Computed example of a mutant assay.
Amino acid sequence: MIGVNRLTSNSELQNLDLIDLLSERHILVRRISEKAWNDKSNIYISNSEWYIMARIYKKRPTISYVTKNVDISRQAIHKFIKNLSVKGLVKVQNVEYNKKEKCIELTALGNECYEQNAALKAQFEKKIAANISAEQVKVLKDILKLDWGL
Rank of each mutant, 00 (worst) to 15 (best):
M1T: 08
M1W: 06
I2R: 08
I2M: 06
G3F: 10
G3L: 09
V4S: 05
R6A: 09
R6M: 08
L7Q: 07
T8S: 10
N10D: 12
N10I: 14
E12C: 01
L13M: 13
Q14V: 02
N15V: 10
N15L: 10
L16A: 01
L16N: 00
D17P: 04
D17A: 06
L18W: 07
L18P: 01
L21H: 03
S23A: 12
S23G: 09
I27W: 03
V29K: 01
V29Y: 05
R30H: 07
R30F: 06
R30G: 11
R31K: 09
R31W: 00
I32G: 00
S33N: 09
S33M: 05
A36H: 03
A36W: 04
N38I: 02
D39A: 07
K40G: 07
K40S: 11
S41E: 10
S41P: 03
S41C: 08
I43H: 11
I45P: 05
N47A: 10
N47L: 07
N47Y: 04
S48P: 01
E49M: 13
E49H: 07
E49P: 06
Y51S: 10
M53V: 00
R55I: 00
I56N: 02
I56S: 00
I56A: 02
K58Y: 05
K58E: 11
K59I: 03
R60L: 07
R60D: 08
I63F: 03
I63T: 02
S64C: 00
V66E: 08
V66K: 02
T67C: 11
K68Y: 09
K68G: 05
D71M: 10
D71K: 14
D71T: 09
Q75D: 12
A76F: 02
A76C: 02
K79G: 12
K79R: 15
F80E: 10
F80I: 05
N83Y: 07
N83I: 00
L84F: 05
S85P: 01
V86P: 04
V86H: 14
V90P: 01
K91S: 06
K91A: 02
V92A: 08
V92R: 14
Q93H: 14
E96Q: 13
Y97R: 15
Y97P: 00
N98G: 04
E101D: 14
E101N: 10
C103H: 10
C103V: 05
I104M: 03
E105W: 01
L106Y: 02
L106M: 12
L109A: 12
L109W: 03
N111A: 04
C113I: 05
Y114N: 02
Y114A: 02
E115W: 07
E115T: 14
Q116E: 13
N117I: 00
A118Y: 09
A119V: 14
Q123Y: 08
Q123H: 09
F124T: 00
E125A: 15
A129Y: 10
A130S: 15
N131E: 15
N131I: 09
I132Y: 12
E135M: 02
Q136E: 09
L140W: 08
K141F: 03
L144P: 08
L144V: 13
K145A: 15
L146S: 14
L146V: 13
D147I: 06
W148D: 13
G149A: 02
L150Q: 11
L150N: 15
